[in-house]
Lab assay of single mutants.
Amino acid sequence: FLTKYFNKQPYPTRREIEKLAASLWLWKSDIASHFSNKRKK
């Protein structure tokens, strides 16, 4: 799911990160680090 979202929006806003974190029961920092790691590849 996160990879699909990343393909659409590689630079999510803070609000989008909060929404993703809430819906996936993850920490915002986990979401942010996932996106930054994907951008590095």
Rank of each mutant, 00 (worst) to 15 (best):
F1N: 08
F1D: 01
L2W: 13
L2H: 01
L2S: 00
L2C: 01
T3G: 08
T3A: 04
T3M: 03
T3Q: 07
T3W: 01
K4Q: 01
Y5L: 04
F6T: 03
F6R: 07
F6H: 01
N7S: 09
N7A: 07
N7H: 03
N7K: 12
K8W: 00
K8L: 00
K8D: 03
P10F: 09
P10N: 14
P10H: 07
P10W: 13
Y11R: 11
Y11Q: 15
Y11A: 14
P12Q: 11
P12Y: 01
P12D: 14
R14L: 08
R14D: 00
R14E: 00
R15N: 07
R15P: 09
R15V: 07
E16V: 07
E16N: 06
E16A: 08
I17W: 15
I17N: 01
E18Q: 13
E18A: 11
E18S: 06
K19W: 01
A21I: 07
A22M: 10
A22K: 14
A22G: 10
A22L: 03
S23F: 01
S23N: 10
L24R: 03
L24G: 05
L24K: 04
W25E: 14
W25Y: 05
L26W: 13
L26Q: 14
K28V: 15
S29E: 04
S29L: 07
D30K: 14
I31C: 10
I31W: 08
I31P: 09
S33W: 07
S33N: 04
S33V: 04
H34P: 12
H34T: 08
H34L: 11
H34I: 13
H34S: 11
F35N: 06
F35W: 09
S36D: 07
S36L: 04
S36R: 14
S36W: 06
N37I: 13
N37E: 08
N37L: 13
K38T: 05
K38H: 09
K38A: 07
K38M: 09
K38W: 05
R39Q: 06
R39P: 05
R39A: 10
K40S: 05
K40V: 02
K40F: 09
K40L: 03
K40G: 10
K41P: 06
K41Q: 15
K41L: 03
K41W: 15
K41M: 14
K41D: 11
